[in-house]
Design a protein around this nucleic acid. Structure first.
Lengths: 338, 338
DNA sequence: GCGCTTTAATAACGCGCGTTAGTGCGATGT
DNA sequence: ACATCGCACTAACGCGCGTTATTAAAGCGC
């Protein structure tokens, strides 16, 4: 089809127009070290490029140079807010190296994922980023081994592929320490489904913060629930109805915190005077719209995306990584719920 | 760099392995009409492909076939919720044609935009989508003319490039008609900045709906304000404090509706019993979290993205478009505020 | 057995470019 | 005067593939 497409200007056209050989044009375009091109010639060539509106053909260049200048990113759901941030971080970082980011979605289906992977590999991407919606272990198709691959927000079940994940331990520690610093000693912890990395790591950080503050750990203050507003509500009720109710709640995510808000208000308690609340995830449109605004920890999606490309660049350059698992800090966003 | 990259399997390798010529392999891969390949040979080749793990090189194919199979998408802000939906719509639609979507962000800066455009054209995209955050007129760099281009959520100031935009008129009509159907006759309209296409179109639809219902248009019921919650609040106050206050408000966007909610509640009025409210934009995390949930019109970003690729495909195939401006319907999402 | 068509395949060119191995030429040293 | 050397540039190959001739063999009618 589209055989009517006008022939584009090529390097040969430029060479002819400037009265030099194609090689010379290539040399000035890639300002090749070692090639001595007098300024006069160089400017003549640049002028021809300008005049003819020449634009290098990236595909041809990739073919000849055997380097595509592309990275691939596979994400579960393109529309998820998290994915967008990963994309932004990765894209901006890739742009620095003048690389393009090819984005493909798996939509959570294995077939789609395989197809996306195939497509990406056919484009000869120089590296692959694989991002998930929530921090967990994954197993990639073997095809992913054909090219440097970095996992983002997840890690290889086989422990072979490098990954970049949020630092859940420090996050949990930071949340608890923040509450301790605000004077709280009885801090309820509404954790996520125990067993997932986020729950395990944050609990570790939580316990360590208490230990450092000389507060004895009370197993009864730790409950876990569904990662929903309802789950948070139920768990919060359980904690708040204890005789020695906690004066602060650290919630596994913002939706759970939303449920906790309901439970707290329902009992006529005030936030943060009677019960302080810290969430997790920083889902803007929950955290910023709750009354009072929710203090929460942000998952560093953008930073993880950028770091992932960083690692890819290193791998592609043949440099070995110092660690196979990199963690990125979860910053605390102070609002009004503590 | 990366000269250590292992040589990938090529078509010649497959041909050698299967004991045929490279051309034959190419023929079965593209199952070329007219080429008679006996099943035995075909299967032998496919088996070799499987065994060697051959994967066509998309770049080389693009070079030889003079078709890249790529579309480019330039958006202002990748992270904006709207952009995500446009991307999803465009990507899914492109995928149907087995085309890739290259996404680049302008971040609202002309320099970035030009760079993105250059990069995209160097990749020899077969078509270009240009999407904005809000419906308005734009002027693209001339370079965009080098390839079929469709504007999404905006239109060409020079009226040359085809575009796909939301149907503001029908949207405004739908909102007003919905309120009329609910029994309202005095419908306040808190419009956006007059002059922008959204404001003009919706007002036209609003007036038409009233006319159709036999309701005389009252200029005093139309005000405009800043596209923020504060702007909505102020405008709503003005309308609600009239002696003959409206029983319904049609707001230019959801944030303004949010402000209107405050003004209504402040006056001890109930939604929707005393004052019904209709928003615009369907910003999920506002519309769905307001009490009561907000009835609003959705901007069809995903559909516009898909339609944009549709038009691109037609243009790339050399088919002329029947119209230079395509409009896409804004569906009404009924919740509890009417 | 001979011409003719169909079938099954291949050799060869070119897509636009990076890169290597040169080539011609003026300036320099002795 | 001649060999040497750096400068400025070019011819030619190959990247992996689509595509267009072209060919060799097989099938067919008579």
């Amino acid at each position: 089809m589209a055989a009517n497409a006008p022939r584009r200007v090529t390097m040969s056209d430029v060479a002819r127009h400037a009265g030099v050989s194609r090689t010379t044009v290539s040399f000035v375009l890639n300002d090749r070290p070692g090639a001595a091109i007098p300024d006069e010639t160089r400017h003549r060539i640049l002028a021809s490029i300008e005049e003819l509106g020449y634009r290098p053909n990236a595909g041809a260049r990739a073919l000849a140079a055997k380097r595509s200048e592309w990275y691939g990113l596979i994400t579960e759901i393109v529309t998820a807010p998290f994915a967008v941030d990963v994309i932004k971080g990765a894209q901006d970082r890739a742009w620095l190296d003048r690389k393009f980011l090819l984005i493909a979605a798996s939509e959570g289906e294995a077939a789609q994922e395989a197809a996306a992977l195939d497509k990406l590999l056919e484009q000869r991407v120089e590296g692959l980023l694989y991002a998930t919606t929530w921090h967990r272990a994954v197993t990639l198709p073997k095809a992913a081994r054909e090219v440097p691959t970095v996992l983002v927000n997840c890690y290889d079940a086989d422990g072979e592929l490098p990954s970049v994940v949020p630092d859940e331990v420090t996050g949990g520690h930071r949340a608890a320490a923040h509450l301790v610093a605000a004077g709280h000693e009885r801090i309820g912890f509404i954790n996520l489904d125990p067993g997932i990395p986020a729950a395990v790591g944050r609990r570790e950080g939580y316990e360590r913060a208490l230990r450092e503050a000389g507060i004895t750990f009370d197993e009864g203050l730790v409950v876990s629930g569904h990662a929903t507003a309802d789950g948070g509500y139920t768990a919060a009720c359980e904690l708040l109805d204890r005789a020695d109710r906690p004066t602060a709640l650290f919630c596994g995510n913002d939706r759970m915190a939303m449920g906790a808000y309901d439970a707290i208000k329902e009992r006529g308690l005030r936030i943060p005077q009677d019960v302080a609340v810290v969430g997790y995830d920083n889902q803007e449109l929950i955290a910023a719209y709750l009354r009072p605004k929710l203090t929460t920890l942000a998952l560093p999606f953008e930073a993880m995306g950028a770091k992932g490309v960083d690692m890819l660049a290193a791998l592609a350059a043949g440099q070995p990584l110092d660690t196979t698992q990199v963690t990125v800090d979860c910053p605390l966003l102070e609002r009004s719920s503590v």
